[in-house]
Amino acid sequence: MIYGIGTDICDVRRIRESLHRHGERFARKVLCDAELAVYRSRAARWPERGLRYLATRFSAKEAFSKAIGLGMRMPMTWRACEIANLRSGQPVIVLHGELKTWFEARGLSAHVTVTDETDYAASFVVVERQPIHQTT
């Protein structure tokens, strides 16, 4: 059963401006440690690729916060929600701390997709509630 749906489109130019204005502090606010390592690696080789990585993660976290109905308020935080990739490249949501506890207590699971093109990054998240099986 669908619990919530969230979508977000992010202007990559706005993320670029935030990076110029706040430096890596902005990336550290949005990305968890594992994501930050990927961001730094990509940005070191090709700054535009690092920027797009940050924009897709920003967008996906916004979409997830909408899908769970919390927005950016506790227990939802930027760093408690990680957008990782399986070996196949498929993006997945990995939760940490209080957000993970909150999410699992409700029997929820999430699906995410991200994309970027020129000036925009977009994400779509579907959150499902696992059916409760009752025995008679």
Results as ranks from 00 to 15, higher is better:
52 R>V: 08
90 Q>T: 13
103 F>H: 08
135 T>G: 15
15 I>Y: 01
78 W>H: 00
33 D>K: 10
22 H>M: 08
77 T>F: 07
8 D>R: 04
30 V>F: 04
117 E>Y: 05
60 A>W: 03
41 S>M: 09
15 I>D: 00
14 R>T: 06
95 L>Q: 04
68 I>H: 05
34 A>C: 06
136 T>V: 14
126 V>Q: 03
42 R>M: 12
105 A>F: 12
134 Q>F: 14
32 C>F: 00
24 E>V: 02
8 D>L: 10
81 C>M: 13
81 C>F: 05
66 K>F: 11
88 S>A: 07
60 A>M: 06
135 T>N: 14
45 R>L: 14
45 R>M: 10
99 L>H: 05
114 V>P: 03
5 I>V: 15
8 D>I: 06
14 R>V: 00
104 E>Y: 13
27 A>S: 00
15 I>W: 01
16 R>G: 05
121 A>P: 06
11 D>S: 06
18 S>I: 02
113 T>I: 10
116 D>Q: 08
14 R>M: 02
87 R>N: 07
128 E>M: 13
115 T>P: 02
17 E>N: 13
71 G>I: 14
117 E>C: 10
64 F>R: 03
40 R>A: 12
114 V>W: 01
104 E>W: 09
32 C>P: 05
94 V>P: 00
116 D>I: 01
90 Q>C: 07
70 L>I: 08
91 P>K: 04
83 I>P: 05
74 M>C: 06
24 E>M: 04
126 V>D: 09
124 F>V: 12
8 D>Q: 07
99 L>P: 03
34 A>Q: 10
93 I>F: 06
35 E>P: 01
